[in-house]
Structures are given as structure tokens and as C-alpha cells.
Amino acid sequence: MPEENSIGLAELIEQIKQELLSTEVEGEKPIPLFSVDQVSLELQVTARKEGKAGIKVYVVELGGGGSRDDVQKVTVTLTPLLSKEERIALYKTRYPQKWKLLEETSIEGLLKGSNDEPLGDLLG
């Protein structure tokens, strides 16, 4: 596997983490409203011993060459340190004005297309 086309497992996980934690919006698209409770990655990796550096694990490139018998399938699961309930409680405390808008947007998204009746009428 050519070194210049390889990406280390730790580097890949770091890039995914940075993208999930990013608050920047690319272009004009709004950030989708959702909470990430778990991310599972299923990867094909190969391990190579590199001098005194120990063993290095590389993610296999799609369409890459090399022998197939040294490739292993690995599943990596990433979960947040705080539970969903803890994250919501912190958000409510830090951003009380934004929480009300977030709550309304979430409810509108859940009820989209189901009924034109006001929410109060539906809930009694």
C-alpha cells in the first residue's frame, strides 16, 4: 500500500470527530436538527510493522491493490461522553432563548405533513 495514499486509523477517527463537532455551515444549507448518540464505522484495515515505531494500522483504500489476505474488518463505535439528557440539560441552561426555538423547530419537524390542526388542539 503506497504511503502517500494511506490514512491512519487514528487520523480517520479524528477527522470524523472534527466533522461531527463542527458548528460551521458550508454554503447556504442549514445544519440538520438531530442529536448523534452513536457513530459506527465498519472499516477494512491493514496492519504494518514500521521499524521502531511499532505497528501502524491503515484504512484500506477503495480499489487499492495489495493482497487481500492481510486485510481485516474492524468496527469502531464512537459515543459522546455525555448522555443525550445531559447534553439537553446543559443546552437549556446555557441557551434558554435558543432552546425554545429549537424545541419549536423540532416539534414542527416531527409533525410535518401529518395534520394542519394547531398542536394545542392535537394534544388536548
Rank of each mutant, 00 (worst) to 15 (best):
G8R: 08
R94D: 15
Q38K: 14
R94G: 10
G109R: 05
V45P: 00
P96W: 02
S67G: 15
T23C: 08
S40T: 14
N115I: 07
L41N: 01
L82R: 14
P2G: 14
V36S: 04
G120V: 11
Q44W: 06
E61N: 14
E104I: 00
S35N: 10
S83K: 06
V74W: 08
E104K: 03
Q97E: 15
G113C: 03
V74E: 10
L41F: 03
V25Q: 14
D37I: 11
A53S: 11
S22C: 06
P30I: 02
E108D: 14
G124M: 07
I16R: 08
L111W: 05
E104H: 01
Q44G: 02
D116C: 07
L9Y: 02
K98Q: 13
S22R: 05
V39L: 08
E50S: 11
Y58M: 00
P80S: 01
L9D: 01
I55E: 08
S106D: 05
E103S: 10
R94A: 15
E104M: 03
E26A: 15
L33I: 10
E117H: 13
V45S: 00
V39T: 07
L12R: 02
S83F: 03
S6N: 09
E28C: 11
V36M: 05
F34T: 03
S67V: 12
T46H: 15
S40F: 10
L20W: 07
V74C: 07
Q38V: 07
E28V: 11
L90G: 09
E85G: 06
S106T: 10
S35M: 11
Y91G: 01
Q44L: 06
E86F: 04
D70C: 10
T46V: 14
P30F: 02
I55F: 05
A89N: 08
E117P: 00
E14Q: 12
Q18K: 12
Q15D: 12
L101C: 12
K52Y: 06
T93E: 14
I16E: 06
V39E: 00
I31M: 15
L81C: 07
A47W: 08
G66W: 03
L101I: 09
L123T: 08
A89W: 04
G64K: 03
W99D: 00
L101E: 11
K49S: 14
V76F: 00
L119M: 09
L101H: 13
G63Q: 05
K29L: 15
L21K: 12
T77K: 11
G51M: 02
K92S: 03
S35T: 11
I7S: 03
G66M: 05
Q18L: 13
G54T: 02
S67R: 15
S106C: 09
W99A: 04
K84S: 14
V36C: 08
T75P: 01
F34G: 06
T46M: 13
K100W: 05
D121S: 12
L82M: 14
V36P: 00
V71E: 01
